[in-house]
Design a binder for these strands. Structure first.
Lengths: 338, 338
DNA sequence: CTGAAAGCGCTTACAG
DNA sequence: CTGAAAGCGCTTACAG
């Protein structure tokens, strides 16, 4: 397997017997090239299997666009993240833009490092589901023209566009559904309190309780459950207590799954009501089917990408927070009566 | 929000009062720079918030490495693809390499276009779950030094490394499990026959039947089911037939889910046995829990990335096919007797 | 319509 | 140890 030399415009020019600049014109589709010359150039390019070097042209080009955007997600392998990825990819593709993505695992240091790595590669913009609590480190890069859109969680110490779900109202709505079915002792199971969405959803949980004149029982509140296992353990403890809650509200995807496991193990899945935030695959096939407050990650990803490209195209209007509504999907688990 | 000018090495050099080349040495960590000069340069760089331009340095650099790899998946949003993504990302990260990924949706034309887009950006290597049937179009690029690793499906009309699951043996093993439980009339539900893995798994299905002296009944074979809905329709038809199979073998993830839906709808989920190829989230929480032949996508992604980087680092040994074993996970659905 | 020169931000190859 | 010149592959700005 012999190594070939990658042909350049210079090589194409030599073969076609024209100047470098003429090749450049043909490759870039300039209309001002003589038909005969142009096809001569195209023939030479095809013969050499010439492929333009986008990285070189972007270096010289006035706008300096790399035709790449960055995408920083919690974890490319989780369904929420990957659904955002896919919709952003589809928007980027229509513009010939590539997506450079990475996972943060809720680690603020990783956020900074990955952002730095993306900026070294001069991405034209960045869509970020942030892990950290201070985004002022992005200010300088933004001032140098890199577009920035926050997703799922708003920026802190930085004014930038964001696309978030209706977390607080959505959570309140889910809890209200339980209250409607007669529940008074409703437990809360939530992810890391450092995550803005967890805070918002917990606030919504409290809103619904307050509205109904129910007191917040601290024994029924479990925060900082970041894995399925942690959620399962916490839920087990709650439902096997001598004074157990009659309903559970789980703040997130994995927490809901851990909670379902705990209920199964205790044989209580048809006795204890459950509403979860975030829909998940097969939630409707479980017994009982799980009632959820669903986000629309595909819509979120599409909107975020559209805003990003508008900024890349020069939109300089003030930063805005865009709120995407959530939707209560009533299945069986939320309708279990007290 | 005023637009700042992005500082270059030239600016840092001017501020530090040294030559461009000295700045280059400091930024690249050359050891031969005077301590005092070096810290002077670092101070200037920090003051200007200088960030090197990786794209420019890679252009000039001898090896021409972009420090990016491409990743072409079926769909970044499906769990199998995104799990490969994540493990490849982890390997790439340890080397400071970025991942540029995209979805093919089983479309050969999209495969070619995305590959071309990645090559324009001069990725150092490409991990590909191919959609098309002819990969000779990649030959020229490979000859110019771009590393190539195929995943899930072997290359055709091109010699290149690949990492695939033990598809045929794994499928045979799953079907054998059903035969062990007394089944003689076993239906097959499979994805597009254009997909190599579907062909292999169907071959494994036939192997197990032949081994047990069972005839292949064409009425029980359903190919080209590419969506959950298609699989559900086909499975419904099969199980509501007047002479229905007593067991089903589903060749893939989504097909299995569609099949479960059909069984539920017919109220046969505890009567008709089922083994699926591919594990999926919550398979163990369904009623009955679904027996599967599991692949190990994380191991596949890690191995593919390691092989790719070995090639990028200059390994010129002959291309190899690496087979990753599958594993039968016995849950309840496969043990339903005839 | 076509091309020779300069330059994007950096590194190589060479002198001092 | 440090720097001036040349050049990576391309486009810009300008002449003809």
């Amino acid at each position: 397997m012999s190594q070939l030399i990658r042909p350049t415009m210079r090589d194409v020019a030599a073969l076609a017997g024209v100047s470098l600049k003429t090749v450049s014109r043909v490759i870039n589709g300039a209309s001002t090239v003589d038909q005969a010359l142009a096809s001569q150039v195209r023939r030479a390019a095809a013969q050499l299997n010439y492929k333009p070097n986008l990285t070189a042209s972007s270096l010289r080009r006035g706008d300096g666009r790399s035709l790449m955007i960055g995408l920083m997600l919690e974890d490319v392998a989780n369904p929420y993240s990957s659904s955002i990825y896919r919709s952003a990819e589809d928007v980027a593709r229509t513009r010939g833009v590539g997506v450079l993505a990475g996972s943060l695992d809720e680690d603020p240091e990783r956020e900074r490092k990955l952002a730095a790595a993306l900026f070294l590669r001069r991405v034209d913009g960045l869509i970020i589901v942030p892990a950290g609590q201070d985004h002022s480190y992005l200010l300088h890069e933004r001032q140098m023209g890199t577009a920035l859109v926050f997703v799922d969680r708003p920026p802190r110490f930085l004014a930038a566009d964001s696309v978030v779900s209706d977390n607080r109202a959505g959570a309140a709505n889910g809890v209200r559904h339980l209250i409607t079915h007669g529940h008074r002792r409703i437990a809360y199971l939530g992810d890391l309190t450092s995550i803005a969405t967890a805070q918002e959803r917990f606030a919504g949980f409290q809103d619904a309780l307050r509205e109904a004149g129910l007191a917040l029982d601290p024994h029924l509140i479990r925060h900082d459950l970041h894995t399925i296992a942690a959620a399962e353990a916490a839920a087990s403890e709650l439902v096997t207590d001598r004074d157990p809650p009659s309903a559970l509200f789980s703040e997130q995807n994995l927490v809901t799954i851990g909670t379902v496991r705990a209920l199964r193990r205790a044989g209580l899945e048809h006795r204890t009501a459950l509403v979860g935030f975030d829909d998940f695959p097969l939630a409707d096939l479980l017994e009982p089917a799980v009632t959820v407050v669903a986000q629309d990650p595909a819509a979120i990803g599409t909107l975020a990408a559209e805003i990003l490209f508008r900024r890349i195209d020069g939109d300089a209007s003030p930063a805005q927070e865009h709120v995407v509504p959530t939707r209560l999907i009533e299945r069986a688990s939320g309708a279990i009566p007290r």
